[in-house]
Design a protein around this nucleic acid. Sequence first.
DNA 1: ACAAAAGTGTTAAGTCTACACCCATGA
DNA 2: TCATGGGTGTAGACTTAACACTTTTGT
Lengths: 235, 235
Amino acid sequence: MQKYSKQTRLLLAVDCIIFGFDGDELKVLLIKRGFNPEKGNWSLMGGFVQATESIDQAANRILKELTGIEGVYLEQLYTFADPDRDPTERTASVCHFALVDIHKYEAQLSNDYRAEWFPLKRFPKLIFDHQEMVEMAKKRIRYKAAFHPILFELLPDKFTLPQLQNLYESVYSTSIDKRNFSKRVLATGLLIKLTEKDKTSSKRGAFFYRLNTQNYYAKFQAFLNFIPNPDTLRY
Amino acid sequence: MQKYSKQTRLLLAVDCIIFGFDGDELKVLLIKRGFNPEKGNWSLMGGFVQATESIDQAANRILKELTGIEGVYLEQLYTFADPDRDPTERTASVCHFALVDIHKYEAQLSNDYRAEWFPLKRFPKLIFDHQEMVEMAKKRIRYKAAFHPILFELLPDKFTLPQLQNLYESVYSTSIDKRNFSKRVLATGLLIKLTEKDKTSSKRGAFFYRLNTQNYYAKFQAFLNFIPNPDTLRY
DNA sequence: ACAAAAGTGTTAAGTCTACACCCATGA
DNA sequence: TCATGGGTGTAGACTTAACACTTTTGT
């Protein structure tokens, strides 16, 4: 079949903002770019979409290649394609964000890859328009997590209510009454209380919970509402 | 500067789902494709991003060229780039949706352009993956309009409460109690009551309202809540 | 015994839902 | 005068927010 004539072709890339939570603050995984331009500078995980790949496949492949991470929550965020965003050559980047359990990947990342976690405050200068991508991803997470239980993706399989509350408090830079928080969260039916306790952060210990995965998938699209004052949120 | 070697280049396109509301149901503007492949078949408004254009500029240009529409609400939705979505040649499409006042463009569309409004029920077969794009856009509108006052973009500058309620009822395929609806809507402070009445749909006439544009922009990002049972909504 | 974090219940305020009647007008 | 659609208020149910004390246990 004949090609479309007289149209500009360009490169298609994927970039991923990988979020993790260390129990205290949100972090993003960055890598030192391995090629010119901007070689050696901090960058999001990115790469070019190959000839026979879908965007989704490319995003998953790049995550795997650069960090070893696979099977995590990954969502398309926005496409950036200003003509001069990459000075080398016009490149459209389909930006994604991923949510991972930071502890699963800490060891392997520092050993096998040149990637590092950076807290959202105290962030290095990033290449190209990557800072803008991060800003958008932060907004999207806050927006989406206000109604959908995506933040569980940042926690290990077993987690405690205080851990979960810390996470919500970090994401929304707010503090939440723990009595109201536990009532809300437990009322969703998304959590199953385990008999085991986490004794690492208190003498008494806090009960572990795990996700009720059935309910999780069933209710994922429903609007929850873990956050007290949604009026203060901004997209 | 040297180019990135050994990478595939591809075409970047923009497609737009243009929504309108005729007072009774939601409609989407379609056009008969003017070139091969699929020449003569129904298509979303689309075109290629030019060498020096941003995506946003391309989307606005294409809207203008194909329909004369400009200055309307336009939002990036999702990027579709499966390798074979266009059989001619690999093409990534950054899909957008637009919300327009259907009455502003009815005359000009039928006279000057080959575009036609189709109700969301009774929809023709579309080219490529355009049907999937429309499905996603419907979901996004329902999602976003549950919390942000975007549906006003579908109405004329002056509109009545019954018109507005009809619109919400169509978008959510539900019926809303008119007493509760008017209380909710008026409580937002987004509307200014005019002295003039619309006598076209009743003998008594319904008061016109217009948007308080100051409040509209200020509160756009706040979560409103016009829809009674958000639990039943799905993303 | 005390410090530090976990866990739990109630009340008042506010919001939401359900519901029915009168109004204005043109035909 | 009557048929049609527009406009308005209230009471009960429910949800949310605010708030403080007891429990556990390691040191």
